[in-house]
Amino acid sequence: MSSVRKLLQVKELKKEYVSGNPVLKGVDFSIEEAGLVAIIGPSGTGKSTLLRCINRLIDSTEGQIIVNDVDICQTKGRSLRKLRRQLAMVFQEYNLVERLSVMENVLSGRLGYMSTWQAWRRNYTQQDINSAYELLGSVGLAEHATKRADSLSGGQRQRVGIARAVMQNPSIILADEPTSSLDPKTAVEIMELLEKFSLEKNIPVLINMHDVNLAKRFATRIIGMSNGYVIYDGQPKGITDDHLKEIYGGESWLD
C-alpha cells in the first residue's frame, strides 16, 4: 500500500480495435496529485484511445483503470455513469451541442447528477445556476451566456467546453488534444485556463498533445508514449532529445 492516495491508476492497459493488432500494448501510470500531466507522442500511438478508455467512451481489451478504488472497466449502468461524472472530458473539436445556448452547454455538465425528468424540464438547482454563471465569468464569456454555441469562435467554444468539464465537479479532467484545432496564441490561453482550474480546484488535468514545447512550458509532468507503450514518465525538464527521438522517431524535426 502506498501512502499517497491514487486518484487514478492505469494498470497493464491494452486495447485492440482489430483483434491481434493492439494500439495500447500495456500502459501503466497513476495520478496522485493535482497538476497538468501532458501525454505526448506521435499521431496514431494511442493517446486518444487511452483517454477515451479511461472515460469508457470506448472499452479497453485488457487491464485495469482504477478510479476511487473501483475498476471502471468492470462497471456498467448507473455505477459507470457515477464514475464518469468524476472523469470530465474536454475534446479537440469542443463537441458542444451546437444548437443549445452557451449556458445550457455549461449546465449540461450537471446532467450526470440529475434525473431524466429534471433534465427534460431544465430543472437545475439554484446553486448549479450560480456556479455556471461564475464559471462562465471566469472563462471570460459571461456576456455570451444566451448565445447559441455555434455562433462562438473556436477558442471561445473550447472555453465553454472547459467550463462544462469543470461544472461536473470532476476529480480528474481528461483533455483530448484540446489545443490542436486552435491558433498558437489561443492554444496558450487555453492551456493557461486549464492550469488555472487545476490549481484553483486542485484537480489533476491529463492532456494529450502534439506540441512538445507547449507541454514543456505548462506541464508539471510529462508522459511520453510511443508505439503503444509509456516510454517516459517524469519531470518536463528531465526529457532529453534522446527521449524525443525515441518517442517521435527521426531527428530532423528537432532544432
Partner: peptide, 9 residues
C-alpha cells in the same frame, strides 16, 4: 459523446 461523458443517462 460529450453529453455521455458527463455521466448523463
Amino acid at each position: 459523446e460529450a453529453i455521455r461523458a458527463t455521466g448523463a443517462n
